[in-house]
């Protein structure tokens, strides 16, 4: 594996003139961990462990790592390894929120009067990076009762199905938690 990562890295160096590139150490580390993750995924999905088939798997993983590095998309956004562990508690909290909100939306849909009060609101996101804003916007969308329409200049345009859902976004708890996950960028 160590041998494989140095080769795509060399290709990346030639490909990245004039662009702000990550440090070479980061690059090798990302390419290496991408290769490992791809290969583990391949093993889990295939379920075949004969030597020939595994060799084909290794070759295809290497080809994908090579193409990824050559396309120069192996940056911190495509491969956000820096927020792997701090994201786990956030996911648990997010699943809890999704469950609570899903029950609320279900009550609204099933009640005969259909008590909706749709509204649009604009919230400010305190995340510094675009990746953090994307995580925040997608978390809002994943939570039933609210979804993000568009993101511009650190502002999110959100559509909410009910007043309670809108209030839930306006408390800004999710915003704080996403900023914490994002960490000091």
């Amino acid at each position: 594996m160590a041998k494989t990562s140095s080769q795509p890295d060399a290709a990346a160096q030639g490909n990245q003139e004039g662009r702000q590139s990550p440090r070479p150490v980061d690059h090798v580390g990302r390419a290496l961990s991408l290769a490992v993750i791809l290969f583990v995924t391949w093993l889990l999905l295939s379920g075949h462990y004969q030597a020939f088939v595994v060799t084909l798997g290794v070759l295809s993983c290497l080809a994908i790592v090579f193409i990824t590095v050559r396309m120069d998309v192996l940056d911190h956004e495509a491969f956000p390894i820096h927020l792997t562990w701090s994201a786990v508690p956030y996911w648990i909290w997010l699943f809890k929120e999704i469950w609570i909100a899903a029950v609320d939306v279900t009550k609204v849909i099933l009640s005969p009067r259909l008590p909706i009060s749709p509204r649009m609101l604009q919230v400010t996101s305190t995340q510094k990076s675009e990746l953090g804003q994307v995580i925040y916007a997608n978390s809002i969308t994943l939570t039933p009762g609210t979804f993000t329409i568009r993101v511009f200049d650190g502002q999110l345009l959100v559509h909410a199905l009910t007043q309670e859902a809108a209030d839930g976004v306006l408390t800004g708890e999710m915003d704080r938690r996403v900023t914490k996950v994002e960490g000091p960028a």
Binding site: I98, W99, A102, V105, T141, L142, P144, G145, T146, F147
Partner: peptide, 11 residues
């Protein structure tokens, strides 16, 4: 409808 469709589906 977006609320109901994409989102309750996810759950």
């Amino acid at each position: 409808r977006v609320h109901s469709a994409g989102v309750v589906d996810t759950v």
